Structures are given as C-alpha cells and as structure tokens.
Simulated scan of single mutants.
Amino acid sequence: MLHDAMTFGLVLTCRTAAQHYDIWLHDPQGEPHVAVPVARGGRVPVRAKVHWGAPLIPRDPDALIDPIENVLAYIAECEPFEQALATWDSAFNKGLVEMAAMSRLPLRPAARRVLAEASPFADAGLETYLRTRLRWLRMPLRIQTWIHGHRVDALIGARLVLQIDGKHHVGAQRSEDIKHDAELKLLGYHVIRVSYTQVMFDWPAVQDLIMRAVAQGLHLAA
C-alpha cells in the first residue's frame, strides 16, 4: 500500500496508519484507509476507504503516513465509540501525542466525545473495554493492579478479581496462574478467570458472571 500511496499521491491514515504507529486496533483486517490532499481531488485509482477534507495537522507534501493527530481524528469518525476509545488510549499510553495537545485542536464532535473518555493508563484494548463496560457497576474498579506480587487484569470492589487469559497462558504460565489464583483465594479474594475470546465475542456471559458474583457480595472485604 505504501507503493500505491507514493504512486498516486495519497497518505495512509486512520486504521492503516494506526498499524504503522503500532497502536491497538480492535480488528486490523480490512481494506486500507487513505487520505487525499485537499488540492488533489478527483477519483482515487486504488481500492480503499478514502478520507477527504482538510486535516487537523498540515501534511508534509512528501509524507506517506498521516500525523498521529489526523489518524486519531479519523479513527473517531470511522470506528464504533468503544473501539475508537481503545485506539486513542493506546496512542496516549505510548506517548505518541499528549491529551492536552489533542484538546487544543479543532476536533469534531465524535473526536471530542472520545477524548473526554480517554485515559493514558491503558496499554491494551481490553483494559479500555473493561473500564467502559463495568463503569455502570458504580464501584471501585482498578485495572492492571498488583496483588500479592502479581499483576491482575481487574480488581472489582475490594475482593473480586477478573483475570483474562490470552494465547500465552499455557505451559509454565498456566501453572503460575493456577498457583496465584490459589494464593489469592487464601487471602480472601474471589477469582473469575475468562478467556480473551469470551471478553471479545461473548461479553454478556462474562458480565453475567460478574453480576452474580457482586450479587453474592464476593466483591466486598471480609
């Protein structure tokens, strides 16, 4: 796609440029996203999602990748709110742009909404998803916090731990996870362990487990 951008005077932006910046995307698959210089106009001779209009940050005429501020602005318009928020959180966490700097730009309403909910402390999309999906519980929620020498994915209330297993939770890592779960239980914590796939594609079932644990008071200190 970089070759096409060079050939036809396009700029990689939005989801495609986000992959270049190595920030989190809900799903990196799909057609490329490009921006067209305002003065160029006309038909784009490549199969792509095309973003028109003046950018937030002026583009170098020779640039092939949009500035991160422009990328995030397009992401806010292109992606569902939760997914856009996760991408913005990732960019802030990596220090690619400061939240204060974004706030001073002439953002459109969708980007303003994302910025209002963004945080620089989430380094992966799942952390953002947990923050937004569990906020309605109206109780303390700590993401990626340390308990008994290990980091847990989420602590709900005082004693309910949510752990999310990815592909690397096998072999020695799996044994260490089981050991830590047992230690947490001896310390009075209740552990709910689910998979990445469950969180991403079967969230209602995960939420149901959490709701039932809260209903039983398993989030409360003894």
Rank of each mutant, 00 (worst) to 15 (best):
H20N: 14
H20I: 15
H20F: 15
Y21P: 03
Y21F: 15
D22E: 14
D22F: 02
I23M: 11
I23Q: 09
I23Y: 09
I23T: 08
I23P: 01
I23L: 11
W24N: 06
W24K: 10
W24F: 15
W24T: 12
L25R: 10
L25N: 05
L25T: 05
L25P: 01
L25C: 06
L25Y: 11
L25V: 08
H26F: 14
H26N: 13
H26Q: 13
H26A: 15
D27R: 13
D27L: 10
D27Q: 13
D27Y: 07
P28N: 08
P28E: 10
P28F: 13
Q29L: 14
Q29V: 12
Q29I: 10
Q29T: 15
G30H: 12
G30N: 11
G30F: 12
E31H: 10
E31S: 12
E31C: 03
P32I: 05
H33L: 08
H33I: 05
H33E: 07
H33M: 09
H33G: 02
H33K: 08
V34D: 06
V34K: 05
V34W: 05
V34F: 04
V34S: 08
V34N: 06
V34M: 06
A35M: 10
A35T: 07
A35L: 03
A35F: 00
V36D: 01
V36C: 10
V36L: 15
V36S: 08
V36K: 11
P37R: 14
V38E: 08
V38L: 09
V38S: 12
A39I: 01
A39D: 07
A39T: 09
A39E: 06
R40N: 00
R40Y: 00
G41E: 03
G42K: 02
G42D: 09
G42W: 07
G42P: 01
R43D: 00
R43Y: 04
R43M: 05
V44D: 02
V44N: 05
V44Y: 04
V44R: 03
V44K: 02
V44W: 06
P45N: 12
P45F: 13
P45W: 11
P45I: 10
V46K: 07
V46D: 04
V46N: 04
V46A: 04
V46P: 01
R47M: 02
R47G: 00
R47A: 13
R47F: 03
R47S: 10
R47E: 04
A48T: 09
A48V: 08
A48C: 05
A48G: 06
K49T: 13
K49L: 13
V50Y: 05
V50G: 04
V50N: 04
V50D: 02
V50I: 14
V50H: 04
V50T: 08
H51C: 01
H51E: 00
H51Y: 03
H51P: 00
H51N: 01
H51Q: 02
H51L: 02
W52L: 14
W52P: 00
W52I: 09
G53F: 07
G53W: 03
G53Q: 03
G53P: 00
G53Y: 07
A54W: 03
A54N: 03
A54F: 01
A54H: 08
P55C: 03
P55L: 01
P55M: 02
P55T: 13
L56M: 01
I57A: 08
I57V: 15
I57R: 09
I57N: 00
P58L: 10
P58I: 11
P58M: 11
P58F: 11
P58G: 08
P58V: 09
